[in-house]
């Protein structure tokens, strides 16, 4: 009996991602039917590269939200890491590309560590702590850069090339996105650490009483997200080449959280997958690009995103309730059988 229940649960769980997938296909079909130019390869690659940064950061945010936390400071973290990297590149033009990427990841990781420490040892609710660091890190971007932006000719060509070239024909930007999604998928489903992260998210008291270090796992997921936001900083620099202290990564937190929520991650923690987040990012990217290509005013984009979030959470909620009902019914039947 319990075995059958399990298979049903995983079936519905799979169906959630499948639902987003179907939605994406329908959307593609509609946009393609209205405007065949939508399927031109340069447009498709434009969609993918616009979604790449969102995917990298969203992958990390998924794990943070799974542990019942939220990180509002990702946009500022991305900004600070891109800015520090850009300044290093400006003062030492001969600096190696790998070194620059590592610097950006390191700065991002430090920001993540700050968030993690505040949330775990400081016991500050993550929404407050990261609301504070959102402003603090953005202020740091200004102090570090002295309010001077990094111009495209200060950014090394090797970094800019990351968004267009690569060894195997796919731009590095997408490879980074693919790696981060795969990494999160691997951690969450194939490792003991992943099991622990989900355990802390679905039942913190239980996880602590089983001897899991709540603080260590919280810090870990925040640092991981910070490092990925650092990678996002590199990709931002590659894509836009200009790093403006006020603009870099501004408002990214809302896009990322929207994508994660559309991807089916429960905002109260405990469930969510990397694949769902990837599809959520893709959906947002396709929608915003498609609306433009079809000729709808770009002003509708925010409306569409809002609707999409509402639709996604409503569907999730209905599915979850049905699942619970079935589960309760099964228990009752079992009791009656005895």
């Amino acid at each position: 009996m319990s075995n059958k229940q399990d298979s049903k649960a995983t079936y519905i769980f799979k169906k959630r991602e499948f639902g987003i997938f179907v939605f994406i296909v329908v959307l593609l079909a509609i946009f393609g039917a209205i405007e065949p130019r939508f399927f031109r390869s340069d447009n498709l690659s434009a969609i993918l590269s616009s979604v790449g940064i969102l995917m990298v950061v969203g992958a990390g945010q998924t794990l943070v939200i799974v542990t019942r936390n939220i990180d509002l400071s990702v946009g500022s973290t991305l900004g600070l890491s891109a800015m520090v990297m850009g300044m290093v590149a400006r003062s030492n033009p001969e600096f190696s590309t790998v070194g620059l990427i590592l610097i950006s990841m390191f700065v991002g990781g430090l920001c993540g560590l700050l968030n993690g420490l505040l949330v775990s040892y400081g016991k500050i609710p993550s929404i407050i702590a990261t609301l504070g660091t959102l402003a603090i890190i953005r202020g740091a971007v200004f102090i570090v850069s002295d309010n001077v932006q990094i111009d495209p000719n200060d950014v090394p060509q090797a970094i800019i090339d990351l968004s267009t070239t690569s060894p195997i024909g796919i731009p590095w930007l997408l490879i980074f996105a693919f790696i981060s999604i795969t990494l999160v998928w691997y951690i969450s489903s194939q490792t003991l650490l992943g099991k622990r992260i989900y355990a802390v998210g679905s039942n913190p008291e239980g996880a602590i009483s089983r001897g899991l270090s709540f603080n260590r796992i919280t810090i870990l997921v925040f640092v991981f997200l910070g490092v990925l936001a650092g990678v996002g900083g590199v990709l931002y620099t590659a894509r836009y080449a200009t790093i403006n202290p006020a603009d870099v990564g501004r408002g990214l937190e809302f896009d990322v959280i929207s994508a994660v929520v559309i991807g089916g991650t429960n905002i109260f923690g405990g469930s969510g997958t990397a694949l769902g987040t990837a599809l959520g990012c893709l959906l947002i990217g396709i929608l915003s690009n498609g609306l433009t290509v079809v000729g709808v005013s770009p002003f509708w984009k925010a409306c569409a995103t809002g609707f999409l979030i509402l639709l996604a959470v409503t569907v999730d909620n209905v599915v979850r309730r049905k699942q619970e009902q079935k589960f309760l019914l099964a228990i009752r039947n079992q009791g009656a059988g005895k």
Binding site: F268, C303, F307, I309
Partner: peptide
């Protein structure tokens, strides 16, 4: 009403309406 009738978390609902209402404004005013 969305939060209560549909039983959804207010954080997500108002995140959605944050985008939705701003979008409506953009559509109205361009």
């Amino acid at each position: 009403l969305i939060v209560i009738k549909l039983g959804l978390p207010s954080l997500v609902v108002t995140l959605a309406t944050l985008a939705l209402y701003r979008g409506i404004t953009q559509v109205m005013l361009g």
